[in-house]
Design a protein around this nucleic acid. Sequence first.
DNA 1: AAGTTGACGAAAT
DNA 2: AATTTCGCCAACT
Length: 106
Amino acid sequence: MTPADELPEFVDAVLAVVADIPRGQVATYGDVAAMLGSRGARAVGTVMARYGSDVPWWRVVRAGGRPPTGHARRALAHYEAEGTPTRPAADEDGYRIDLAACRWRG
DNA sequence: AAGTTGACGAAAT
DNA sequence: AATTTCGCCAACT
């Protein structure tokens, strides 16, 4: 294997953007894709699923302020800890991130 | 090279 | 308002 290339470039780019999201703020999957000049919100999600464990993954949320699929509970603990504004909701997740208040613009 | 797969998004039912 | 369908994009088989 070539020594200098362990991850696909797109993966590296996604992780770099996520690492830049300030504490207490969030970006949507689509936002992250857009910052990379792509419209692949899903592709970003795939990257997070596979490589997101070592970056602030809870700062990447779905459109509409819903937390990442399957991680509502764990993500909430982080929002509470860093003061990200959330609001109770009647869906499965139980809450919603207040995007209007804390959405990050790179 | 073609088809499958997702921590997604928006539009159409 | 809640589902379903369709569109997108990058990685993997």
